[in-house]
Nucleic acid binder design. Structure first.
Length: 298
DNA sequence: GCCGTTACGGTTGAG
DNA sequence: CCCTCAACCGTAACG
């Protein structure tokens, strides 16, 4: 079954959607049942997929403005556990991005390591796997983070040394991905990360001015210490006020997104909650190109 | 009522 | 091309 991106409607959301305890809609979709683009289109509504960056950013923005997590949770229709997790991560790493999903850790049995094991075995055929492991560490070929396990070494001895003494090349080919796991959130798994900042921010001259989150999603904004919120008890602006405030400045006035922005200015709260999901979706897909066309197709 | 934590069922992507 | 597996996700529930 294929659903054209231009034809995803409320009916699809109703068909596949579920409503969480806060009234937010999320969709639990078996991926292959819907066209790839459509899956991405409804990312913001998905369980098992990260919240869109727009929502994540909004969570952080609201928290910076002193809104309590429970209120953020209710307003954005996101579970408080999720809000808590995102804020905790932001607090710890300075990043609003989700972690890298999927993939495998880089292999430790690189050609270099395999060759070294082979040499050790050839020099001393009676050597034990655990002895090889110790040698790899002692000789500086590996460190404790990337030394192969004893079982891995045994497998190498069995498969690549015993049977393939002279095959120096292809059997041991591996691809390392040092960038993927070496830092906490070094890469953005869904395409190029957008610069996380409030477009058309009213106080563009101040990097510390709210509601701008850190303008770099990876490194913390070390010279801004407005986190946690400065005035926990004295915040007077309501969530709605702040959301309206942000809408005023976040969306380019000529953008087609303006329409979706205006959608949540409805006075009907139920309409607002539903529209907000769409709003966040449109905002997020407009912000990053994760393989889908964000232009004319929308 | 708030919030940190965790079980759960889900997706993802390298190997 | 399909499978496996370990990473991540958000929700719901618990304390």
């Amino acid at each position: 079954m294929q659903i054209d991106i231009n034809k995803v409607t409320d009916n699809h959301v109703q068909q596949y959607g579920e409503v969480n305890q806060l009234g937010g809609v999320f969709v639990n979709v078996i991926r292959n049942k819907i066209a790839y683009k459509s899956v991405d289109l409804m990312l913001s509504l998905f369980q098992g997929r990260p919240l869109p960056n727009g929502t994540r950013m909004r969570i952080v923005e609201l928290a910076r403005l002193g809104i309590r997590p429970c209120d953020i949770s209710r307003q954005l229709r996101v579970s408080h556990g999720c809000v808590s997790k995102i804020l905790a991560r932001y607090h710890e790493t300075g990043s609003i991005l989700p972690g890298a999903i999927g993939g495998s850790k880089p292999r430790v049995t690189t050609p270099k390591v395999v060759n070294y094991i082979r040499e050790l075995k050839m020099k001393d055929p009676g050597i034990f796997a655990w002895e090889i492991r110790d040698r790899l560490l002692a000789d500086g070929v590996c460190d404790k983070n990337n030394v192969p396990s004893v079982s891995s070494i045994s497998r190498i001895l069995r498969n690549k040394v015993t049977n393939h003494h002279h095959h120096h090349h292809s059997s041991a080919i591996s691809h390392s991905h040092p960038h993927l796991y070496n830092s906490i959130y070094p890469t953005y798994p869904y395409g190029t990360p957008p610069p996380i900042k409030s477009e058309n921010s009213p106080n563009t001259s101040s990097s510390c001015g709210s509601p701008s989150p850190p303008n770099n999603v990876i490194s913390r904004n070390s010279h801004c210490h407005h986190w946690p919120p400065l005035s926990h008890g004295s915040i007077t602006h309501s969530v709605s006020d702040i959301l309206n405030f942000n809408q005023k400045f976040v969306q380019p006035q000529t953008s087609p997104q303006l329409a979706t922005s205006q959608m949540i200015n409805s006075h009907d709260p139920a309409q607002n909650s539903q529209n907000y999901n769409y709003y966040m979706y449109f905002q997020s897909t407009g912000m990053h190109g994760n393989g889908i066309s964000t232009g004319a197709n929308l």
